[in-house]
């Protein structure tokens, strides 16, 4: 039996689009974050434009992610749902706790949004790997 799966090709395409949008978002985020100090000497208007571009590309990334998730088969959608549940839960519970640690001056450094993002990203990756391994 030789069946050419259009679904598999669409899946691969969605994954590539998501990777490209994510890469573009990271680049625009780096430009918007570092540009004022390194590229345009704090010029407010240029910073606003850079942030606007970052938000627009971010919206594209969100849509690409939604499309990618909707294109998955039901097993992979279930794995993603569980990984996102862990990520959201740990972000929601861990974020304020991290902030409380700083408020109580128990952290030797400032609690920043980047720490929360890093924690959520790691949680997502680990939960995804565990979920995929369970069904491998």
């Amino acid at each position: 039996m030789t069946i050419r799966s259009g679904w598999a090709a669409a899946q691969a395409r969605n994954t590539v689009y998501l990777a490209l949008w994510t890469g573009a978002w990271l680049v625009t985020l780096a430009v918007a974050s570092l540009g004022p100090a390194l590229l345009w000497d704090g010029h407010g208007a240029i910073t606003l434009v850079a942030l606007g571009v970052n938000l627009a590309v971010g919206a594209g990334m969100v849509l690409a992610n939604k499309r990618h998730l909707l294109g998955l088969d039901e097993l992979h959608r279930a794995v993603q749902l569980e990984a996102m549940a862990w990520t959201l839960g740990i972000g929601l519970v861990g974020g304020p706790a991290w902030q409380a640690l700083e408020t109580a001056k128990l952290l030797p450094f400032d609690a920043e949004i980047g720490h929360l993002m890093m924690g959520m990203a790691l949680t997502y990756l680990v939960a995804l790997a565990v979920g995929l391994r369970r069904f491998a």
Binding site: M1, T2, I3, R4, S5, G6, W7, A8, Q11, D73, E74, L75, H76, A78, L132, R134, F135, A136
Partner: peptide
């Protein structure tokens, strides 16, 4: 039918991993 898991996955428009998980009763 002498189909591989990949053949069946293509016919069902799911991943081979999904066919394998169903076959082995894990999903």
């Amino acid at each position: 039918r002498d189909w591989s898991q990949a053949d069946l996955a293509a016919a069902l428009e799911v991943s081979r991993q999904t066919v394998n998980a169903i076959e082995t009763g894990r999903f």
